[in-house]
Design a protein around this nucleic acid. Structure first.
Ligand SMILES: [Mn+2]
Ligand SMILES: [Mn+2]
Ligand SMILES: [Zn+2]
Ligand SMILES: [Zn+2]
Lengths: 153, 153
DNA sequence: CTGGAAATGAAAATCATTTTCAATAAGGGG
DNA sequence: CCCCTTATTGAAAATGATTTTCATTTCCAG
């Protein structure tokens, strides 16, 4: 079992232990797979990759571990509207980003640009909405849909 | 069969025929139910309501008709993250709006306020993203999550 | 009115995710 | 280092929203 991003893995493993969970082989392997794949993977994508390293893994464990990692704050879960959840590990510095989704080929682009302006609007909107509807806003979802370069040629 | 919002119904029925579809009883009843319920209904919600008026309806027809209405542009389909799609009819003037979703009770609030500022940011962001990633943006999704007044008391 | 295409409804199929439950493994105390 | 308790795992079955299939019914143009 090779661990890329070893430093990060250590930190993530710490988060798991700190939350009171055991550090099992399946969890380490799943974390490792997530750490070495930048994309937005489905549970099955992850299952297939983990399976190569640790063939006795069960899909159930993938789902359970992903839930755990999301709850601990190590993993981000997204829904791009294709009926399956997508997961990506939260890497230091590249934390808050939004998604640009190609409706033709399902390619997903992360972007952090324009986040400054967005943040400003978000702050204003949040304030306005909170006051107007007496609603305590805890999160937001912003996604753009369109057609990527390749799918237009 | 009573039709509220009769004027609108006529217009919507026109859209269906214009798109080359037949104007059947199930479609009229579903349209009627949507027109008289402002909320964000699931397919089953709609099925139950339609069933009272037209008991022979099948859930399959609900799904098929909703697809059709969405494709024709008469109905808006949303996903609030609870595993079932929600539908609402597009009423003149209150067209473009976003959603505020209570994570405790699932209440959904429509809002059009701040849309102006949002639109401005959206325009800028769209332009920036289009240029930077050579991506043709066709749509966006913006939702706020939080806890409503009632769920905090 | 009528024929043929479009639409419908019941039942079965899909498919991602969850639940159940018996077997296994982690890791703190001895 | 070894146990013991309890968390975790994996296989299989269950779930639940949505889709597909297919035989029957309905719409509506001619
Ligand atoms: Mn991402
Ligand atoms: Mn709405
Ligand atoms: Zn594409
Ligand atoms: Zn609430």
């Amino acid at each position: 079992m090779r661990f890329g991003r070893r430093g990060f893995c250590k930190a993530w493993q710490g988060q798991i232990k700190d939350a009171g969970y055991r550090l099992t082989i399946p969890r380490q392997v799943i974390l490792d797979v997530l750490a070495n794949n930048t994309g937005h993977l489905s549970a099955e994508d992850i299952y297939l990759k983990v399976h190569k390293i640790y063939p006795q893994i069960g899909l159930t464990t993938i789902y359970r571990t992903l839930d755990l990692l999301v709850s601990v704050g190590v993993v981000l879960k997204s829904d791009f509207g294709d009926g399956r959840a997508r997961f990506e590990i939260k890497i230091k510095d590249k934390t808050h980003h939004h998604h640009l989704i190609c409706t033709k080929c399902s390619r997903v682009i992360d972007y952090t640009d324009f986040i400054d302006k967005e943040l400003k609007l978000l702050a204003e909107t949040k304030k306005g909405l909170s006051e107007k509807f007496d609603f305590e806003i805890t999160g937001h979802l912003i996604q753009f849909y369109g057609v990527c370069k390749d799918c237009r040629s």
